[in-house]
Amino acid sequence: MNTLSAGRKVLLLLAVPVLLVAAWWAATADSTDFFWPPLSQIVGTFGETWFTGRFTADVLPSLARLLVGYLVAVALGVGLGTAIGSSRTLRGLLEPVLEFFRAIPSPVLVPILMLFAGIGNEMKVLVIVSGCVWPVLLNAVEGVRALDEVLRDTARCYRLRPHSRLVHLVLRGASPQIAAGARQALSIGIILMVISEMFAASNGVGFTIIQFQRSFAIPQMWTGIIMLGLIGIALSVIFRAAEARLLSWYTGLRMSQREG
């Protein structure tokens, strides 16, 4: 029964992707269009395009910049968000400004950041930070604000010191919201990783895709896009695994509330 339902789950999960790939395969099978090469050809060049040096030369640098930018953004977002969420004064002062900055699409910051930070890794990391920080920050503010009153009172009654209050009450209590923000930030991060490399770069996945396009290496260009998709899936799987571990209490709590 259990293995059957697990099998069904996998089948349901893969049904649409398999159908889409099959449709793509069939539609382009005898394509002679230069810009729409057959999928078989794209898949054929995938291995040699990416696993003969480009993985370490381009994919890893991209991922490293994404990781650094993302982690800085999460740390910054949680830190500032917790401070803002805990203080009514700070909230009143900063909320309009935050809304303004949040509304600016980060890609437009690339040319500006290039002026200040050059075209090196710093600029790309900064672009990623500038885009990823907002969902984390705003969700952290909300999460901290929404902490349960009774739980706050309990922490006060048992005289939790500020440090334990922060660790055991505020951050844990806001963690479901923070995780929701971090999940949004991850997809923004991938987009910005690519965009920052398209402007000015000497390596990276985004840079490579642009290079292929400019040199009319169309099947290779398509493999780059597939590569990005695969990176996105891999990161999301890792994120979900970490989330499931850290927030198992939250899942359990929600399920028990639904039953009760």
Binding site: D148, E149, V150, L151, D153, T154, H168, L169, R172, G173, S175, W249, Y250, L253
Partner: peptide, 10 residues
């Protein structure tokens, strides 16, 4: 409110 005075993550 016992349900809200215990830390659910502990």
């Amino acid at each position: 409110e016992y349900g809200r005075s215990l830390f659910p993550w502990m």
